[in-house]
């Protein structure tokens, strides 16, 4: 009989390298960044740098979860940043300018994001465009759509329930963390307890073989892009909730990069196939910790992308088949 703890152990073992990287980053901060691990309780919730990383990292991680599935099918979604902007614009405009109740505003924002995801999926599956190109269209046009919704203005709103998403706390932790936990459990259950996860991996591994084996490949790919859009929409709600405003021009700017990099750092191959949801969450936290570390080392927010880019290229080099082959040869042909 399988021990119920075994899958959890396996999950941790499969992400040992990302975890090691995260531990290394935290160790660096323990040594060089004063006050990095300081935590305090105020008004029944935790405050501190780590909590801040968890809070903002969760937003990236939610997008990264959707992105993981897309990448596992051998695709990529460049439009998530634009969808974040659209989702925030819809929610803020409905609440602030049309006096809509908050559940309607949130529902509408998520519905629009879902439609955006379906649009991407249709372009990929029906028009058979390359995923990079298909999602590039929404990446270009989506921000225009968001600005169209807000009329180019920054829409501020006063809605306690909507502001709660980004600023409230649940069990002492910021709300996005709880949202991430919910999304992670849902993704984990659906992808490991149903055949959907297997379908996704088989499509990413070998599309013709998956089709011949009877996998409904178009439907699955369409679904995956739709889910990715929905995740971006949820992140968009968090994003506009942080600042209690929708800024169509800047919301989710460069988020697609952070999300893709989180997935890659987490150990999911960009070529598709096997995917690691837990790895992507860790990857998102690595990205956020790296960003925060740079800020606390007095690197300006404008310059911070440069060292991030170097870190990412290094990780990709380590993962590349060429380097792995060379390492294997150095070990004398044995080992993994």
């Amino acid at each position: 009989m399988r021990s119920p703890l075994r899958p959890i152990g396996e999950a941790f073992w499969s992400v040992r390298w990302p975890l090691a990287a995260l531990a290394l980053l935290l160790a660096f901060n323990a040594a060089f960044t004063p006050g990095f691990f300081a935590l305090e309780v105020r008004d029944g919730r935790l405050f501190g740098v780590l909590v801040d990383i968890l809070n903002h990292g969760s937003r990236v991680a939610i997008v990264a979860l959707g992105m993981t599935l897309v990448i596992a099918t051998g695709g990529v979604d460049l439009s998530v940043g634009a969808v974040v902007a659209i989702s925030g614009a819809v929610a803020a405009t409905l609440v602030a300018q049309h006096g809509a109740p908050w559940p309607l505003a949130m529902g509408a924002a998520l519905a629009v994001s879902l439609i955006a995801g379906v649009w991407n999926g249709v372009l990929v599956t029906v028009m058979r465009l390359q995923p990079i190109v298909a999602t590039l269209i929404l990446m270009v046009a989506g921000r225009g759509v968001a600005q169209l919704i807000t009329d180019g203005l920054i829409i501020t709103f006063e809605s306690p329930p909507l502001a709660y998403l980004g600023n409230g706390s649940l069990l002492g932790l910021p709300v996005p963390v709880a949202m991430l936990a919910g999304a992670f459990v849902a993704f984990g259950l659906v992808s490991r307890r149903t055949t959907l996860g297997l379908f996704i991996e088989s499509i990413g591994d070998n599309p013709p073989a998956a089709r011949l084996a009877g996998v409904p490949d178009r439907l699955v790919v369409l679904l995956v892009y739709a889910v990715c859009g929905l995740c971006a929409g949820a992140a968009g709600l968090i994003d506009c909730s942080y600042i209690k405003a929708a800024d169509a021009n800047n919301a989710g700017q460069l988020l697609e990069l952070d999300a893709i990099l989180a997935v890659v750092l987490g150990g999911t191959s960009l070529a598709g196939g096997r995917f690691l949801l837990f790895g992507s969450v860790i990857g998102a936290m690595i990205m956020q910790t790296l960003t925060k570390t740079l800020y606390m080392q007095n690197v300006s927010a404008d310059i911070a992308p440069a060292p991030k880019a170097i870190a990412v290229i290094l990780v990709c080099l380590l993962q590349s088949p060429v380097v792995r082959e060379r390492v294997r040869r150095m070990r004398g042909g044995g080992g993994a």
Binding site: L254, L257, I260, D302, I303, P305, I310, I313, V322
Partner: peptide, 21 residues
């Protein structure tokens, strides 16, 4: 290293922008 072009140039986008600042 047989890396996907979009990934390398995406990192390049980050890097050059940071370098400009």
């Amino acid at each position: 290293f047989r890396l996907p072009p979009f990934l390398v140039t995406l990192a390049g986008l980050f890097f050059a922008r940071g370098a400009a600042f």
